[in-house]
């Protein structure tokens, strides 16, 4: 408490001062001025909350702990190893010589690229990865845009039929993909999108998960900031792009990762829409898994290649997410 108090106090008073300085220009009457100041105080106390997480955590560590820090680290290290080991084993197996694949040694030695040569000889890896990337990227961006607008409508307005419409979004989770598949396939063939990348993308442009997650975060967003933007005379469209989205950046970063992965990982729908020859990377592995039998080294190499682009993107996006957290913590 003693640590976090000096942190909150100046920022709160500064915010209140800024608000009361701006208030007289918009409201004339003295009574309204007082009400606005009260409002501003409420806004500050609310908006100061999320930024203070660092201070609160620091205050927490100064108290007696039920589990020593080393224990916490140990728990997390065990969990991290559990998470990473299968992936490590995949790459380790892929770099062994095809004859060494049954080795138990933790490090593959001697190293060999033979498995990768087998994969490149039997699959058009470049085309598979390019197709998958285009599908995943366009789907993720489209979903983010469509769902951001929908979530904004749900979070910022009360309107007739809101509950029913929201239920329509939630209920898509209940509709099994296996029920809608046939009819969507027929629609695609009627409008000529079968065998095209667009045919994979277009039916997936609305993600109920994205709408729900964005709505949840927008509702946690201090309502007073939206009202302040409205009082400044900003329209809802401007407010969305200048107030809501900049404040949601960490959420948007992690959500876009999620949407991209989901699209990358989808393989039932691409399998139906695209012809086998130039389809997506997962179908490549799938056919490989059947054809190669127990050539585990080559199968692991193909799986590793399918994951590599995602891992690379995650490294980049992860840094953005971390940056956003650090910046909000430093303020």
């Amino acid at each position: 408490m003693s640590i976090s108090e000096p942190l909150t106090a100046p920022s709160a008073s500064a915010g209140a001062a800024a608000r009361s300085a701006a208030a007289p220009s918009s409201a004339g009457a003295a009574a309204k001025d007082a009400a606005a100041a009260k409002d501003a105080a409420a806004a500050v106390s609310c908006s100061a909350g999320p930024e203070d997480t660092g201070g609160g955590a620091a205050a927490g560590t100064s108290r007696r702990r039920w589990l020593p820090t080393s224990g916490r680290h140990l728990l997390m290290i065990v969990l991290s190893l559990f998470s990473l080991f299968p992936i490590y084993w995949m790459f380790a197996s892929s770099f062994r010589r095809p004859g060494d694949v049954n080795d138990n040694s933790l490090f593959p030695w001697p190293l060999s690229l033979e498995n990768y040569r087998i994969v490149f000889d039997s699959l058009d890896v470049g085309t598979l990865l390019a197709n998958t990337f285009v599908i995943a990227a366009v789907t993720a961006v489209g979903q983010l845009l469509v769902c951001l607008l929908a979530a904004y409508a749900f979070a910022a307005w009360d309107f007739r039929g809101k509950g029913l419409l929201f239920l329509l979004f939630v209920a898509t989770w209940l509709v099994p993909f296996q029920v809608t598949m046939v009819s969507n396939y027929l629609v695609l063939s009627n409008i000529g999108l079968l065998n095209t990348l667009a045919g994979v993308i277009v039916p997936n442009l609305c993600s109920a998960l994205a709408v729900l997650m964005l709505r949840q975060h927008m509702q946690a967003f201090p309502r007073e900031l939206l009202d302040a933007a409205k009082m400044d005379g900003r329209g809802s469209w401007t407010t969305l792009w200048t107030v809501v989205i900049p404040n949601l950046r960490p959420v948007l970063a992690s959500l876009s990762i999620l949407l991209f992965i989901t699209a990358w990982n989808d393989y039932l729908w691409p399998a139906l829409v695209l012809p086998r020859a130039n389809s997506v990377v997962q179908l490549g592995i799938r056919s490989f898994l059947g054809a190669e039998g127990d050539a585990w080294g080559a199968i692991m190499a193909a799986s590793g290649l399918a994951c590599l682009p995602i891992f690379a993107i995650y490294l980049v996006m992860q840094r953005q997410v971390i940056d956003a957290f650090v910046r909000s913590g430093l303020r």
């Binding site: 997390m76 290290i77 969990l79 991290s80 998470s83 990473l84 299968p86 992936i87 084993w89 995949m90 197996s93 999620l258 992965i261 990358w264 990982n265 393989y267 990377v281 997962q282 179908l283 592995i285 799938r286 898994l289 585990w296 199968i299 692991m300 193909a302 799986s303 590793g304 399918a306 994951c307 995602i310 891992f311 995650y314 992860q318 971390i322 957290f325």
Partner: peptide
């Protein structure tokens, strides 16, 4: 941040690749 980054990695692996790795395990 590092721990979170690591435990999130399995979610990145495509299901068919996941299935292949675990079938091998």
């Amino acid at each position: 941040t590092a721990y979170r980054a690591m435990v999130f990695v399995p979610m990145l692996v495509a299901p068919v690749a996941t299935a292949a790795v675990w079938r091998w395990l």
